[in-house]
Design a protein around this nucleic acid. Sequence first.
DNA 1: CACTTGATTCGACATTCGTCAACATAGATG
DNA 2: CATCTATGTTGACGAATGTCGAATCAAGTG
Lengths: 140, 140
Amino acid sequence: MCQHRYVSNTRVLALLDSADDGTVAAPCCPPLTERPFSAEEAETAARMFKALGDPVRLRLFSAVASHEGGEACVCDISDVGVSQPTVSHHLKKLKDAGLLASERRGTWVYYRVEPAVLAAMGRLLTVTPPVGRQGPAGPA
Amino acid sequence: MCQHRYVSNTRVLALLDSADDGTVAAPCCPPLTERPFSAEEAETAARMFKALGDPVRLRLFSAVASHEGGEACVCDISDVGVSQPTVSHHLKKLKDAGLLASERRGTWVYYRVEPAVLAAMGRLLTVTPPVGRQGPAGPA
DNA sequence: CACTTGATTCGACATTCGTCAACATAGATG
DNA sequence: CATCTATGTTGACGAATGTCGAATCAAGTG
């Protein structure tokens, strides 16, 4: 284990909220239960689900997401039973899928979750509330 | 299109709720952001994500989930651009993953969503609230 | 029973995926 | 600069996946 000082990001991932900078948090698709997905919507959403459709990737992602401040360096999470290149490969996949972002600080590379996308996926699996409450927070 | 009479299931999928019979709705794993997944948890959860990780399956699932009463016969949803055997193949995968259940009524086979599992997946992607509120039991 | 429509199974195939070993690169340290 | 540690990249290979056509099964209809 490494467990060096992580830049204590006090921000604790306000995922289900719209990003604090005002961005709309990956407006990919409506909830799965709202209407049949179009081919394009399905393509987009499937890419995200597929990224989490591997046990190793899920463990890596969970490790990052549950880490202090929602970020961790590779050395802190690479104990998942596969070789180092494989870990790197999976992290790249998660990054390509838009679920993680990486940043190099000195010797180590830190990965952190992309709150907006996680929120979008959560919304996908959420049933539309009985009453038609809309507006996910004004674009201000 | 077929669009025969569907047994008008007025029940509208109370997914994010625990099942009305009191069952805990597929207690597979904690939220992804709560703690690193174990190998077993990851295996279980990844199976579900993988099932939705294909565009065709996602469209089929969405079509079923958004249909009246949360169920639909194959003929109503098989217009996704692939052959009939392929549709059947994907539906079987969704069924094997526990996301759909099927039932034959006369000539047609009806698929419906498995609310508990969808709810479990939704919980996976939900962040634990910022303040250390613990109990999974909702604050009403 | 013969015929039609719809759903599933089977066999085959090309593609993608997960994995590793070997090598390459970035930064730190001496 | 030499060297060490931490990550990323490349190439290869077996396994799994998505797809189809043909055959088969199930139910309804004449």
